[in-house]
Amino acid sequence: MDFGAMVDYLPLFEQAMWLTLRIGWIGILGSLVIGLVVAMITHYKIPVLYQISLFYIELYRNTPLLIQLFFMYFALPRVLGVGIDAEACGMLGLALLGGAYMAESFRSGLEAVEPIQTESALSLGMTKAQVMRYVVLPQAVSLSVQSFVANIIFLLKETSVFSAISLMDLMFVAKDLIGLYYNTTECLVLLVIFYLIIILPVSILGTVVERKLRYGAFGS
């Protein structure tokens, strides 16, 4: 292995990693917001929005991100007449994909909270909104932590297709360098290392948080 070349490539990979991290985490935050809103809509079965949400969830869960991105980046602007910045498209695409998955996680968490919790909060004089905010949602979130972490890892892995809409992410850099210099092994090793840097901490954190929630803070 040519370590000299690897050192030379480091800055390029590092830059690409920041791009992946930026798009990935903003997308993930977006997906949590979308997921929460959609889960609330489906929980309260708000007419019209409910049907739209169900359609959105099914559509995004049953099609590949790559094609969603192609559609958003190449096709939609053609018809709508407004272009979209590749980076914004990546974030939005990831947030929409993740939103469909996060909504399902929130939903199953909400369903897992005992109905008696709602009743006793109501009988303490709370309004429906207060019951959701102070009693049901915090419990639903902690019941879904495992599934959130799985979704976050899934979404971080999905960021690997961003190069398809010409974003200079890790895959893009690796492919580019392999094409230019044929240092295939070196580039692939760097690629693996950088994805480990991105995903491994989340994976480890997930295990820790899960253990803590299960045995420590509360729950019964």
């Binding site: 892995k157 492919k175 295939t184």
Partner: peptide, 14 residues
């Protein structure tokens, strides 16, 4: 942990 695309690159190029 590894994205499928990375694995694909490893097999295809590597």
């Amino acid at each position: 942990i590894m994205p499928q695309l990375v694995l694909l690159f490893i097999v295809f190029f590597g």
